[in-house]
Design a protein around this nucleic acid. Structure first.
Lengths: 271, 271
DNA sequence: AATATTAAATCATTAATTTGATTTTTTCAA
DNA sequence: TTGAAAAAATCAAATTAATGATTTAATATT
């Protein structure tokens, strides 16, 4: 059936809960169950949702109005595709490291593409990239200036490579650089599948003040065909979790930054 | 499960339709069906929804961008719709001039974008362009190597300009070049709206063995703000019709080529 | 007017979301 | 600690929304 004016059963119920809350300052779960004839589970879910929207504060057995009327929107959500979710979290983390006025470097890759998407609504930043799809993603963003390295496009991967690309990269300076990679391990360091992409990545790295490798945990202790650089070339790493004690040791010993999106494990905490 | 930051299938499809529209000014229903692998019914429903949101205007067989916001003329849309067919014809004619092994240059613009689309299934050619959307269009084409000039992207027009772009263009050679323009007349010659685009166009022209200006008849005897080059710099012109006797005279006298997509009028035949 | 094309309307099917029942884990108060 | 209450997690049923196939009406084009 068509939703009348966009008011679904659930929305009506949650609106009712808010009315109750405004009337009495707080509500209990049993109260909601009785009043709206729903299960305990839905009552909880409604309160969770309202809390996520920043309207109320959960308490034991119910909820109360948020007295601090600062409407802070906290909307971090769960999704089906775990790896996608993790990449989005990694991208968000990386994007949060970007500040006004920054010159941000992005290589090609899924995670870096998501960083670009996250940067879309930043203001007064410049993004330097060799990925055509990243440039397209940022094309309608007013606050972001996009500089694309030229070069020959690798069909299907959207990456610009070759001497022409290199000649441009040699003429620019990058502030914070985020590099998408295919493998990371202590010994060869950071690696990738494609020789051409490795070369341009290496060059961009050399032009950047600070370079961070961004990757999900499946890339850890994996070695791809072509080496980009040893770990020591990097300012730090952005990933969801890093459970390898050896790598944690290495990162700590070399005073490199580690940005994690998931709650730290015992091993990680120890460092 | 909840999807709130996650983009639903339908939303993604409609966003894709908007991107298509921004790139090409219009879309057809079959185009949507092919591109997004959906039924005719959903394609229609999507367009209806987007129209309801005020973003686009439905036309017979598809939709086009709402241009009434920028130009208040009522009949403008019909004109534009007609022009589309002519631009496609012009693009097809230009594409037919391309041969195996050619190095083809394309500036930004609607007509040149359509040339790129027409070149998609050519084999063993190289396309050099400063337009990001043209590179994207050719990204999945096996027989076409794409070389993108780097540079700063002009947001919304997808064109790469500036010194970086120029430094790359200075290092390449173009065989047949097709230039999109905003105005053409005997006296200042070929002109365009944007200074930056004029400059990069001028440079590409200087690097090309043969350069053709491509335009529809509404550009004839129009003069835009920035001059690119006098007519004599061009090997020839590709358009739908050219009814100006003075320009016909001029073209004949200078032994330049004229490629028309519409049956020649008496005036044109006389030359 | 006749034909072909496009649009609208309808309905069955599929996909997605919401919900309630159940089980497991966590938290709180003694 | 331990038991009771609350919260979270899990799963299947129910509801709702989205889609595609089909039919019917409208519209361009000749």
């Amino acid at each position: 059936m068509m939703s009348d004016q966009g008011i679904s059963k659930g929305e009506r119920r949650r609106a009712g809960i808010m009315t109750l809350l405004k009337q009495q300052g707080k509500v209990s779960i049993p109260e909601i169950i009785e009043r709206f004839e729903c299960s305990e589970a839905t009552a909880r879910r409604d309160l969770d949702l309202l809390e996520k929207q920043g309207n109320i504060i959960r308490t034991l057995g119910g909820a109360q109005l948020d007295t601090t009327l600062t409407s802070g929107e906290t909307s971090f959500n769960e999704k089906r595709n775990l790896l996608w979710l993790e990449k989005e979290a990694i991208a968000a983390k990386a994007a949060s490291m970007v500040e006004k006025g920054d010159i941000v470097g992005l290589t090609g890759g899924t995670t870096t593409f998501l960083i670009a998407r996250a940067l879309k609504f930043h203001n007064d930043i410049t993004v330097v990239t060799n990925a055509v799809n990243i440039a397209m993603e940022l094309a309608d963003s007013d606050g972001v200036q996009v500089v694309l390295t030229g070069g020959v496009m690798r069909n299907k991967s959207f990456e610009l490579c070759g001497p022409l690309a290199e000649s441009i990269v040699n003429n620019i300076h990058i502030g914070k650089m985020f590099m998408g990679i295919d493998g990371i391990s202590i010994d060869p360091g950071v690696t990738t599948f494609s020789e051409l992409e490795a070369q341009i990545a290496r060059l961009m790295l050399s032009r950047a003040s600070q370079c961070y490798a961004v990757f999900d945990h499946t890339k850890i202790d994996k070695i791809s065909l072509f080496a980009i650089a040893p770990l020591t070339e990097f300012k730090g790493f952005v990933t969801n979790r890093l459970e390898s004690p050896a790598m944690l040791d290495y990162i700590e010993k070399h005073r490199m930054e580690l940005h994690l999106t998931e709650p730290a494990t015992e091993a990680e905490k120890a460092h």
